[in-house]
Amino acid sequence: MNRKMIHTVLLVCALMPAMAQAFGNHDTWTSGWGQGVSEFVIKGKGQSQLYLACDDAGSQPATLIFTDASGHQVSIDSGKRLQVRIDGGEPVDISDSDSRVGDDLITQAWNALRTGEQVLVTGDGLRPALFTLNGAGKVLPAFNTQGCISKFAL
């Protein structure tokens, strides 16, 4: 094999795991599972996506990561502001899940994701992104079930 061919094969092999882990689409919510973690995702314009995950054993708090169109991210419990606005309603601050109020707000927002039509997500230093909630009710479990819990609940 010539050197160019070897470099090409090595590059393809190196990229395969990254491509295999990428999932989700723009039209409907999708779910996946691996190593005791249930994952839920919807993609938006550019690199934007809304990613939620729950530790099936309930030993870790739920994860929610918002990525904007430029690829910048913010997540709950990171010390940065994160808000959702479902179906044009009032913004709900889901920045912190380590308090009773934070737990209540995340429960409210998470469960509204299951019944709404669209969500606008904003975060500190990120561009807002709009996502469909098509199929969310079929894949997202209710909050405080199936390992989807807040830091406060631990």
Score class of each variant (00 low, 15 high):
V41K: 15
V41H: 08
V41T: 09
K43I: 01
K43M: 08
G44H: 06
G44K: 00
K45C: 00
G46L: 10
G46I: 07
G46K: 08
Q47V: 00
Q47D: 13
S48T: 05
L50R: 02
Y51N: 12
Y51C: 03
L52D: 00
L52M: 15
C54I: 03
D55H: 13
A57D: 13
A57Y: 08
A57S: 15
G58I: 03
G58L: 08
S59L: 14
S59D: 13
S59F: 11
Q60H: 10
Q60Y: 06
P61H: 09
P61A: 11
A62Y: 05
A62E: 01
T63C: 06
T63K: 15
L64N: 00
L64P: 02
I65C: 12
F66S: 02
D68K: 03
D68A: 07
A69E: 10
G71W: 10
G71E: 04
H72D: 14
Q73C: 08
Q73G: 01
Q73M: 13
V74L: 07
I76N: 15
I76F: 06
I76M: 14
D77N: 15
D77W: 08
D77Y: 11
S78N: 13
K80F: 13
K80M: 14
K80N: 14
L82I: 09
R85S: 13
R85G: 01
D87Y: 03
D87G: 02
G88P: 03
G88L: 07
G89D: 09
G89W: 09
E90V: 10
V92P: 00
V92K: 11
V92D: 06
D93C: 09
D93A: 11
I94F: 03
I94E: 07
I94M: 06
I94P: 05
S95Y: 11
D96P: 00
D96N: 13
D96R: 12
D98T: 07
S99Q: 02
S99T: 12
R100A: 15
R100G: 12
R100D: 15
R100Y: 12
R100H: 12
G102C: 09
D103Y: 05
I106R: 11
I106H: 00
I106Y: 04
I106C: 00
T107G: 13
Q108R: 15
A109T: 05
A109V: 05
W110Q: 09
N111W: 02
L113F: 14
T115V: 14
T115Y: 04
E117K: 15
E117W: 04
E117R: 15
V119S: 03
V119A: 09
L120C: 01
T122V: 11
G123W: 01
G123T: 04
G123Q: 03
G123D: 04
D124R: 13
G125F: 08
L126H: 04
L126P: 01
R127L: 13
P128V: 05
A129E: 02
L130S: 12
L130M: 12
F131M: 09
F131N: 00
F131E: 05
F131R: 07
T132G: 11
L133Y: 02
N134L: 08
N134Y: 02
G135Y: 02
